[in-house]
């Protein structure tokens, strides 16, 4: 058993255990914490298989951005302190069956590949070649994603703005903190 493999086993068990934690947790913030461990584990998995740029991107975007947003959302919508989620037995049964079937099918396909890479493949290109690729051969998807991000920014701002107006109208709360006109 090589060191790579040993590290992979450790990482994989952390990832798998915390993924189970996400599913079975009773409060939304606890789920988020387990999701945090899963995402960090996946980031380190990227580092382990040599995709350093992706590992760092995963950390900064998912852990620093998305997950904080999720926890924020969980706190703002929880309705009470440490509200628990209830799941019926039957739902566990059906959901578990579906998940098990999917896992079995995917695992079957993966195992059919066998011990595929027998020799060392070259490391994937780093941040430099990736950036060049984004501006040359993969320019179109890059531009589409940029426009998509802009649309998302505008859309999220629009949704948040209507929410503020509705809250102001119904609750008659104080004026916005920066003193602007409501």
């Amino acid at each position: 058993m090589t060191l790579d493999l040993a590290l992979f086993v450790v990482l994989a068990s952390v990832i798998a255990a915390s993924a189970i934690g996400v599913v079975v947790s009773h409060t939304i913030v606890r789920s988020a914490v387990f999701l945090l461990f899963t995402l960090i584990g996946v980031a380190f998995l990227y580092f382990l298989i040599g995709a350093e740029f992706l590992g760092a991107a995963q950390l900064i975007v998912y852990v620093g951005g998305t997950l904080v947003l999720l926890v924020f959302g969980g706190m703002l919508t929880s309705g009470g302190p440490f509200q628990t989620l209830k799941v019926r037995r039957l739902e566990w049964l059906f959901g578990g069956l579906v998940a098990l079937a999917i896992f079995a099918a995917l695992a079957q396909v993966s195992l059919a590949l066998g011990q595929r890479p027998t020799t060392d493949a070259p490391l994937p290109p780093g941040a430099g070649p990736l950036g060049v690729a984004f501006l040359t051969s993969h320019l179109l998807p890059f531009e589409i994603v940029s426009v998509h991000l802009l649309v998302v920014l505008v859309g999220a701002a629009y949704l948040a703005r209507t929410r503020k107006r509705a809250a102001l109208g119904s609750e008659d709360s104080a004026s916005p903190p920066n003193g602007g006109t409501p």
């Binding site: 992979f8 998995l45 993966s110």
Partner: peptide, 21 residues
């Protein structure tokens, strides 16, 4: 070198957990 199938099984497990969630 980590065999490809191990990583794929891990990802399949994450996928199943996501679906269950």
């Amino acid at each position: 070198m980590i065999p490809l199938s191990y990583i794929l099984i891990l990802s399949a497990f994450l996928f199943a957990c996501g679906v269950l969630c």
